[in-house]
Nucleic acid binder design. Sequence first.
DNA 1: TAGTGGTCTAGACCACTAG
DNA 2: TAGTGGTCTAGACCACTAG
Lengths: 250, 250
Amino acid sequence: MSTTAGGTPGRQAGGTPSKHEWLRQRLQEVVAGLEPHTPLPTEREIATQHGVSRQTVRRALDALEDAGSIYRVHGSGTYTAGPMISKTLTMTSFSEDMTARGLVPSSRLLAAEAMPAGDRIGEQLAIPGEESVVRLARLRLADNRPMCLETTYLPEARVPELLEQDDLERSLYALLHSAYGFRLTRAEQIVTGAVLTGTEAALLRAPENTPALRVHRIGLDDRDCPLEVTESLYRGDRYDLRFTVRREGE
Amino acid sequence: MSTTAGGTPGRQAGGTPSKHEWLRQRLQEVVAGLEPHTPLPTEREIATQHGVSRQTVRRALDALEDAGSIYRVHGSGTYTAGPMISKTLTMTSFSEDMTARGLVPSSRLLAAEAMPAGDRIGEQLAIPGEESVVRLARLRLADNRPMCLETTYLPEARVPELLEQDDLERSLYALLHSAYGFRLTRAEQIVTGAVLTGTEAALLRAPENTPALRVHRIGLDDRDCPLEVTESLYRGDRYDLRFTVRREGE
DNA sequence: TAGTGGTCTAGACCACTAG
DNA sequence: TAGTGGTCTAGACCACTAG
């Protein structure tokens, strides 16, 4: 266990102090500066160089492989991957998504009210249909141009006085975390094709029959309980969904 | 290392003989029979019961967590997850996708020809634009109803005499593996909204302006080299895309 | 404070690649 | 056949939960 000049993991307050995560970031930087299909040092070499066990190296490499930065050939070696268009899909908020695309997100609150859940939303939030939910309708903008219509439903019992909050136009995820301590860790999504008509087209300032993407999402907390249902309608001419998929098993 | 009555891993020819995979399947069966939020035995107990190390147990549980079958609470325990609508997105062929949805896939070959790649396709396949590609256009059916229009481009140099194959209407993935030994392990996908018009609407037997999903895919082999570019146009009224996303880091 | 999952190690052996 | 990644173990200690 050497204390290299470059810096050892350390235990930053609030950060991620794990060795494999620290090593992952180190290796990511190295990989970023290499041509595609360049061999990396062997796992045993990396382990020795950084004073960690081979398992820790493998864990860091696993993360890089998942992210599509490297690929491994059994019996041969580890190599830098080709250029990537897309990333592995992860759970992001609209704000984060737009920022990652280099756009400036903003929001206009269209409606904020309490109402009975009803059967459909109630079932998805795992609460009785008579129970109250908070409904937020927002027009989402990117670089001040309409991008998406978003309607979110939350069980009122879990977010009391949400309607009294004054930053409902900002990131809801951030608010849920800071004001209520919730951590959304997983979401189930259903994406369908759609066509903009009537009110939707008008709000998004798009011509009638503009293609669109409808994203239905159920957000779950770290205890696997539904916390949020969101219906998003994206302008198809300004938005696409990019992701990497892998072959499982085999 | 006990040889339990239930059966130990064993080394089946061609199968997946790893202990963690064997244990994963075992645990999956157990989990499937339990109510949501039921605690599982502790990792140490599972290890003892199955005569494996705790790391092997953790690896099996990691897979179940990724698949959304369980969730873990640090310091507390491991629990069965709530009901799932969707699965983690993995790379599948049309045939596999439809079969998983309980539909019977079939196919009608619309065109099969060799042609120059051109700049756009050439760049995506990482070959010069003058080089030849095989182009396959297929109408994909599910339960004998038009579902999707699919056009695939492959570098002819890597799939010689593909056009002479007589089962081009069947699964292309299976053919690429059996006839050429290729393994597609990763794909990058871009999903956009679309509207069916003209020829496309006619071929899919859908009314004009039917919403649709366009999926652009670059398939990569196990050496991370592009092997296939496919453009798919799905009828939006019959098809949706379902998947689970997770919050990364944190 | 007892018990749980999370991280990490040193070492062994296997499966596969590529000369 | 030497070298690589893939699997697995036994054991240690830490961070966190929940009574």
